[in-house]
Design a protein around this nucleic acid. Structure first.
Lengths: 201, 201
DNA sequence: CATCATGATGACTGACCAGTCAGTCAACTG
DNA sequence: CAGTTGACTGACTGGTCAGTCATCATGATG
């Protein structure tokens, strides 16, 4: 019984590990190539397993893509929530959102390429965009609350959208060749610009 | 001789028309589906010709995509140049850029979907992105000049990039379901926000 | 040690699609 | 009107790739 229990938990652990290896590999290949050109074989090879094994853990290429995207989105939004929630005052919350997202991008280039492509028409089968939409809305709500005090709903929305778009641009440029230092500088400039725009009453 | 000349010029005209029909169809299908999922057969059907005919006018699917994208980019940048060039004063130039681009988007949804996807990793074979890059730079330079007076180069660049990103976001949301009226309102809000940010010295 | 169970494999299948080309036909020519 | 041209067609080819499954490897069990 003890032996069986030990064996079981070991199996569970191996299973979880495999899943994670495959997810990691998927994120990399999807991030580099995009959904369509990415081959399941390539993902399998990168994860160090055979193609059939991928299909033991995920029922289809789309499901794999979905899992990789959702997991990253979940983590990103969680971190943003924490960071923004901990900050005091409008300006600090704004800074927290932007710096946290840029920092997250720094450690997750592959995922952010997926994130970026997932919002485009045609890059990805349509229903896979639903996940993205949900997390997009979550971010906007977070921002509306963070920036909304003393503003009506419409103004809060505009501010939220502006912060979202400018941060997205920052990250996209980082993914497309800007250095980390340049991005850091750009980020400060954007924050300053936003502060001016949002504080001016 | 006169008969031959007439026949020739007629043929030329038909050829030009065909090319344009195909380009139009390509823009639509590429815009709806994205590069990879779009089928040449579907483009041909939509243009009212057989697949082989498409290959009489364009040597490959990629070449067709490239032609469709470049033509649209050329026209867009030309209009932006005209509008911004005609405006007097920083604020008017800012307004000209944003309203012209949003108005252009209104009449060219298909093209703008391509435009938007072309900037993503993986959506499109890599070397096709080169065209996009060139026109992206052209727009930034235009904006830097338009907004640059009384600003150093770095500040002008930041301002240009911010306007570019916010306008892009506006258009993307329009393509993804916002109504024309909502977009109009959003545009005014963004312009106000930008004016505050850029005029505050 | 033989048996069984379960995870892993990779050769294979079927669908799809870019690109080709032998053949058709409408319009022009002499 | 017979002959010629070349734009157009669409069935076909070759290659790719998601997803399957017969087979194997491992290691637990009695």
């Amino acid at each position: 019984m003890s032996a069986r229990a030990a064996a079981d938990s070991k199996r569970k652990a191996v299973t979880a590990l495999r899943q994670d290896e495959i997810l990691q590999a998927a994120r990399h290949v999807f991030g580099q190539r995009g959904f369509n050109p990415a081959g399941v074989d390539e993902i399998a090879r990168r994860a160090g397993v055979a193609k059939g094994t991928v299909y033991l853990y995920y029922p289809s290429k789309q499901a794999l893509y979905r899992a990789a995207l959702r997991e990253g989105l979940r983590e990103l939004v969680e971190r943003l929530r924490e960071a923004v929630g901990a900050a005091q005052g409008m300006r600090a919350r704004l800074g927290a959102y932007v710096t946290t997202k840029v920092a997250f991008a720094e450690g997750h280039h592959d995922f952010l390429r997926m994130y970026s492509a997932a919002s485009e028409a045609g890059g990805v089968p349509l229903h896979l965009q639903r996940d993205f939409r949900g997390f997009y809305e979550a971010q906007l709500e977070l921002l509306e609350q963070a920036l909304g005090e003393g503003r009506d709903a419409a103004a809060a929305r505009v501010a939220a959208v502006a912060v979202f778009d400018l941060t997205g641009g920052l990250i996209k440029r980082r993914l497309f060749g800007r250095t980390r230092e340049e991005t850091e500088r750009d980020m400060r400039a954007v924050l300053e610009l936003l502060s001016k725009a949002l504080e001016a009453r």
